[in-house]
């Protein structure tokens, strides 16, 4: 189904910079909440900034900015955008 490139999650965004959402892992209400925040199939997500020492990341999607911890970002599977997807 997926291209043979290594699985990427939103936690990899600081490296790949731009990605498209594939899916949100899990079916609990928190996973559902991440979908309701706009992490839906095909949504483009851009990396904005990361706090030092492995701190949270700020991403922009759907015209707004959201701060997430890496542990939450790992729940969101992404693919790198064309031309950038091969990095990492």
């Amino acid at each position: 189904m997926n291209p043979p490139s290594p699985e990427l999650t939103l936690a990899d965004l600081p490296r790949v910079l731009v990605g498209k959402v594939l899916s949100v892992e899990g079916s609990g209400k928190f996973s559902e909440r991440l979908r309701e925040l706009g992490f839906c199939l095909g949504t483009e997500v851009r990396f904005e900034r990361q706090a030092p020492w492995g701190g949270p990341i700020i991403v922009s999607l759907r015209g707004y900015r959201l701060c997430l911890r890496l542990s939450e970002a790992k729940l969101i599977r992404i693919e790198g955008m064309a031309g950038l997807g091969g990095i990492g």
Binding site: Y64, R65, C67, L68, R69, E72
Partner: peptide, 9 residues
């Protein structure tokens, strides 16, 4: 902890 997210207006 439960997942945390916060919007930056």
């Amino acid at each position: 902890s439960l997942p945390f997210y916060l919007e930056l207006p």
